[in-house]
Design a protein around this nucleic acid. Structure first.
Length: 443
RNA sequence: GUGGCUAUAGCUCAGUUGGUUAGAGCGCCAGAUUGUGGAUCUGGAGGUCGCGGGUUCGAGCCCCGUUAGCCACCCCA
């Protein structure tokens, strides 16, 4: 007698049941579709990298969160904690074959050994897209458009993409004499929404070492209110004499204007000087996307511009801009907002097994429907019709097909729309078009 | 990584100051005179109370450890 092993998943790792997986796949399909529609090409990289490729790229914090071990060949290896660092390695390794500009998307799992919470897991999926090899603001603008289209396609209407530019922040900090402390100041500033004005001042004076006056000035600048244009005008006057600061302002100004011209509703793009992003490698435009109905879950799609993605791997300069959709965080949000469908089958039609001797006919009609792109499941047992209908209903089938001796004699099928409860007797020749008609009616 | 809260049926929970065979709702399975589901009614299955140790005559309830979930910090998708 052997002891039973407790079936359990690792802390922060999860199983996905069909209901959850169907939604996940729907989102990844949408992401692929949107990325490809802008000309981004797919790539993939290994889950494991040499540890030295990944170490030191996201600061001490991400080093501590690495799943790192020695493999059986004595190699020091680690699981990737994002898709950007592997992309840097990839770009350096293959730059000669890629040509510029190079646009890629990459959907993949990443791993971080941090403490799990709602919407934060140790294994989660990121959906990245980046454009490298150009410093043009057009790429920054396109990044904004992709983020926007992505959320709209997924079904969100109420969200804002907050944008900022590191150049503006750096220019402002230079003017205040805080050039050397940018990282700490930005990190504190990034928490404004969470810990409030006094909290940020406290952190800046105690942990970063600024004076209270400097901290207050930073906050005044970061807290600028008004329309995007008003903020930009104000920043412009504050940054007189700072070349980089003014460059940042002009890039942001163009970003905001062009987004509107391109058809993005104005209220969805919000200039916010307090958005700083924790990651050190951003140098230009910064994006963070918040759901209006659930801001507390954090940014669901973030990114920015970097001057030199692969500086540690190659002497070639590879500037770029991109962003990452946090699929699992977005799913956690959708679940909390009640936006996830409860179906647990990918099929649309269930063929009821009414007569066990007619399995051949049921399988045949299934193939006919599939050839027209209608996914169809044939019930395997000649159970009571009521039970089969119940099964169809629970799993979320849209249509049930029934045929017994009466129907076979007439060459027809009973087609029941499980949603409207309408049933029709349809000649086999018209079956495909009839079903397509039902499926075309809303969701 | 630091600090805290929680852990009882598939899910959401009840279980009185430790006291005999641990409950409910929902869900699941099966029926309600054998060709139609989401309603109602009837019946049924399902728990060694997360796991391991300890205290006690006796532990779901107290103590310690462990695993997992959640919350705050940290950081971030």
């Amino acid at each position: 007698m052997s002891e039973l092993i407790t079936p359990q998943t690792l802390k922060g790792f999860r199983d996905y049941l069909p209901t959850a997986m169907l939604v996940r796949e729907k989102l990844t399909d949408i992401a692929r579709q949107v990325y490809r529609s802008y000309g981004f090409s797919p790539i993939d990289t290994p889950a494991l990298e040499y540890a030295n490729i990944l170490l030191g790229k996201g600061g001490d914090e991400s080093d501590k969160q690495l799943f790192r071990f020695i493999d059986s060949g004595e190699r020091d290896v680690a699981l990737r904690f994002d898709l950007t660092v592997p992309f840097a390695r990839f770009a350096a390794e293959h730059s000669a074959e890629l040509g510029v500009p190079f646009k890629r998307y990459h959907l993949g799992l990443v791993w971080r050994g941090e403490k799990p919470q709602k919407g934060r897991y140790r294994e989660f999926m990121q959906c990245d897209f980046d454009t490298i090899g150009t410093t043009s603001n057009a790429a920054d603008i396109e990044t904004l458009l992709v983020i926007h289209d992505l959320l709209v396609k997924i079904g969100f209407e109420r969200f804002t993409i907050r944008v900022n530019n590191r150049l503006v922040l750096n220019g402002l900090l230079d003017k205040l004499g805080l050039t050397g402390q940018t990282a700490g100041v930005l990190r504190a500033l990034d928490k404004l929404a969470k810990i409030g004005r006094d909290g940020v001042i406290g952190e800046m004076t105690e942990k970063v070492g600024t004076t209270a006056e400097q901290a207050a000035s930073v906050l005044d600048l970061a807290g600028l209110k008004g329309s995007n244009t008003e903020i930009l005008d104000r920043l412009e006057s504050l940054l007189v004499g700072s070349e980089i600061g003014l460059l940042g302002v002009s890039r942001l100004r163009e970003l905001c204007q062009v987004a509107v011209t391109a058809g993005v509703p104005e209220e969805r793009v919000q200039l916010d000087v307090s958005i700083a992003r924790g990651l050190d490698y951003y140098t230009g435009t910064i994006y963070e996307t918040f759901l209006t109905d659930l801001p507390g879950i954090g940014s669901v799609c973030s990114g920015g511009r970097y001057d030199n993605l692969a500086a540690l791997f190659t002497k070639e300069k590879l500037p770029g801009v991109g962003a990452s959709l946090g699929l699992d965080r977005l799913l956690a949000a959708m679940e909390e907002l009640g936006l996830v469908a409860q179906t647990s089958t990918p099929a649309q039609v269930l063929v009821v097994c009414f007569d066990g001797d007619r399995i051949g006919d049921y399988c045949r009609i299934g193939r006919v429907l599939r050839q027209s792109g209608i996914s169809t499941e044939v019930f395997p047992d000649a159970k009571k019709v009521g039970q089969q209908f119940k099964y169809a209903d629970r799993k979320g089938f849209r249509i049930a097909l029934v045929a017994g001796s009466n129907e076979f004699a007439k060459g027809v099928w009973q087609v029941k729309d499980l949603k409207s409860t309408q049933q029709a007797e349809v000649p086999e020749a018209d079956l495909v078009s009839h079903i397509q008609g039902i499926l075309a009616q809303s969701i």
